[in-house]
Design a protein around this nucleic acid. Structure first.
Lengths: 327, 327
DNA sequence: CTGAAAGCGCTAACAA
DNA sequence: TTGTTAGCGCTTTCAG
């Protein structure tokens, strides 16, 4: 590994001059610049990022705290966050919490200026008083807990309303919801959107049609759907709070020979790639994940320069597929 | 941010003693140890990893070079690699190549001792002479290119043979394969397993039943399946070289009203979580991803101490589901 | 057993 | 415009 000093010696200049060239500082005598560049080339010099960051008083990394990489939504988002972070010369340190309170607490506790410059958080279980952050942070999605931390995400109430309005426009009358959760902020907001869409259409809000889900995995969607199908009067449509729940719900429907969308229309949330190829393909609320990733990273970059509280609302759309409208 | 010096001052000892305590060095006078521990507690000291690594001449990170995080197999694997790397106090730097030659080349070029201590590589397009690695590395999966680099993965020939034998045991006679690829080593090996299973059963190897796939996404599987269904004599079973291809193939079958498994049995490879909940659920070769991740990381850890060339074979199993055996 | 001090590779203040 | 040098926070000889 060639160091700055090696390059300087070879070029016959001081380390300062080499550093200037490496960092694109303008005022370097053309002759020196040329010789430095040659020496750089000859030695195959690569800056030692660790040393640079130490000197600059930064770590060169941001944390991305999320439940689990095997959840498609987070996998897709992570890829985009990594790409966005690259623009700011940031590495992304991924911390999986598995959606547990203890996992999230220990992830938060491990964060700090000694480890990362900033953090992107996607908590599910944290309480208000857990948020004692020591680095600039941004929350993904909206949360029940009202903490003074920047946020990036879509308008969940509006998005849920669009989804349920779509089901109503199809003439469905008994529309269920899967994914209610006592502590998740986004769940509360999506439920609120569901409720308001029913209300504006003059449809009753029925407790029996609102099914909680402790987790948002496929298995939870399947279990919830089974309970709905067991009702004396099952729903003719279901709005699931994420695509995994919806996939599980469709699976349970298939097992009971309930036809989607003929007997049951299904809408999901997140627009996982998987949902395009399921049979039937899944109608889903599609947040713009690229926007979310970019907005979150850019916001952190700004906040590392000057602290501020920002809330960024990113766009979404409803992608209608076979689970609500047959081919 | 409290530093070692702050702690030392507070405890009334030298930094050396604090460092000894922090690093679990045994021979510290009990009295000093106690005072240091109190000071540590009082200041909330956290070691600056950047500084530590700089001094130790390591980076504290390993690279994980893969095509794309949105591919479920890699997302699942990445989560496991991160967990395994934590045991060795390694961060994982993810580099996405998108499976392109240029992407893989630039990822490899960016690696180096200034950036990472070691690397886990999952290349798809690289040529033999691209492998000029400057850090200990391990290849995931087997490859056509025969380079002197350690490898971790399953026996692809054997795994493919097991998959195809299963189809044969079901009485299928016209078994297709989707995923042949001119440059991918694993593709060649899986094709070889397919061929040998046919051979041992006395079934003919038919060129028209072997469909290449340039990429291994769902869309490629769907396209390949369509071409198979267009044959005057379509297959009664298909072995897909990964689960995404299989999901796409099942989708295409559904669109043509071909029943799975009655008319067409389908086997995939990778055992994505998604495959458990598809309709029908997908029979798949399941590599033990946890073993792969752990073996790769442990192997690298060994190699950073003493270089060696190792090949680790990890276990796999065939999980039979509805796509080959109806409920 | 512990302190003083060097130095990992880099940047930047200061001098020249 | 460039050289000298201090020092980021840590580990680690080397003395004591």
């Amino acid at each position: 590994m060639a160091t700055l000093k090696d390059v300087a010696r070879l070029a016959g200049v001081s380390v300062k001059t080499v550093s200037n060239v490496v960092n694109g500082y303008s005022f370097v005598k053309p002759d020196n610049r040329r010789r430095v560049e040659e020496a750089l080339e000859a030695t195959g010099y690569r800056p030692n990022l660790g040393a640079r960051n130490l000197r600059r008083g930064r770590t060169g990394s941001i944390a991305l705290v999320l439940p689990e990489l095997s959840i498609p939504y987070f996998a897709e988002l992570t890829g985009l966050v990594i790409a966005a972070a690259q623009e700011h010369e940031w590495n992304v340190l991924i911390e999986q919490t598995f959606g547990t309170l203890s996992g999230e607490r220990s992830a938060l506790a491990s964060l700090g200026p000694h480890l990362v410059d900033a953090a992107i958080l996607s908590p599910e279980a944290l309480h208000v008083d857990d948020f004692q952050l020591s680095v600039p942070s941004v929350l993904l999605g909206e949360h029940a807990v009202d903490v003074p931390i920047s946020r990036v995400g879509i308008d969940n109430v509006a998005a849920a309303r669009v989804a349920v309005r779509h089901l109503i426009s199809l003439g469905r009358k008994r529309i269920a919801a899967i994914g209610a959760h006592p502590h998740r902020g986004t769940a509360a907001l999506r439920l609120e959107g569901y409720r308001s869409a029913l209300e504006e259409a003059g449809l009753p809000f029925l407790d029996e049609l609102v099914v909680p889900a402790l987790n948002y995995h496929r298995a939870d969607g399947a279990a919830a759907m089974k309970s709905l199908l067991d009702l004396r009067n099952p729903p003719d449509a279901v709005f699931c709070f994420n695509d995994l729940l919806a996939i599980g719900a469709m699976r349970a429907a298939a097992e009971r020979f309930v036809r989607v969308p003929a007997d049951l229309a299904v809408v999901g949330f997140d627009n996982n790639e998987e949902s395009v190829y399921s049979s039937p393909s899944l109608t889903s609320v599609a947040p713009d994940k690229g926007s979310i990733a970019r907005a979150a990273v850019d916001l952190l970059h700004r906040q590392t320069e000057s602290p501020a509280l920002e809330h960024v609302e990113t766009p979404f759309s409803l992608l209608v597929r076979e689970s609500t409208v047959a081919r």
